[in-house]
Simulated assay, not measured.
Amino acid sequence: MVDFTVAICTYNGAQRLPDVLDKLKACLESGRRSHPTLTWEIRIINNNSSDETQQVIEQYQTQWSSDVPIYSHFEPQQGLAFARQCAVEQAQGEWIGFLDDDNLPSENWIVSAHEFGREHPQAGAFGGLVKAAFEGTPPPGIERIQSFLAIVERGNMAFQYQLKTGLLPPGAGLVVRKDAWLSSVPKQLFLKGRIGQVKLASEDLEAVSFIQQKGWEIWHNPQMQIFHKIPESRLQLDYLVTLVRGTGLARHHIRMTRLTPWQRPLAFLIYFCNDLRCLLLFWLKHSSQIHQDLVTTCQWEWLRSSLVSPFYLWRQGAIYGESLKK
Rank of each mutant, 00 (worst) to 15 (best):
K23V: 01
E119G: 09
W216V: 08
G97T: 06
E107P: 09
C27A: 13
F268Q: 07
A113F: 10
L168I: 06
I70N: 06
R315K: 14
F148L: 05
Y320T: 15
G136V: 04
K25Q: 14
V111N: 09
V2S: 07
Q78L: 15
L279R: 00
Y161F: 11
G196I: 10
F98G: 04
R84H: 00
V152Y: 09
C27G: 07
D275G: 01
V244W: 04
G248N: 00
Q77D: 07
I230D: 07
R255T: 03
G246E: 07
V130D: 04
L24N: 05
D238T: 08
L167Q: 14
Q92S: 15
V6S: 03
W64T: 01
R251V: 01
L205P: 00
W283M: 15
L189H: 04
M256F: 12
E153W: 10
S184N: 12
K199M: 02
Y60F: 15
G124I: 03
Q15I: 11
F126L: 01
Q213E: 12
A158V: 13
R264F: 14
V2L: 11
D19F: 11
L104C: 00
L249H: 07
V20I: 02
E41L: 01
S50W: 03
T247P: 02
I211D: 06
R264W: 03
P231W: 08
K23I: 08
Q55Y: 08
P18C: 06
F268E: 03
L266R: 12
A123I: 08
F98V: 05
N108K: 13
Y320F: 12
R33P: 07
N46E: 05
T242I: 03
T260Y: 12
V2A: 02
I45D: 03
G141C: 10
Y11H: 12
I226W: 00
H291G: 11
L168G: 02
L240T: 08
C9H: 01
I42D: 00
E119Q: 14
I290K: 10
W64E: 03
W109A: 13
I211E: 06
F98Q: 06
A87L: 01
A26M: 07
R154F: 03
I44H: 04
I270A: 14
A180R: 04
T137G: 05
D51R: 10
F159L: 09
L80F: 08
Y161D: 06
E41C: 09
K192L: 11
E232I: 08
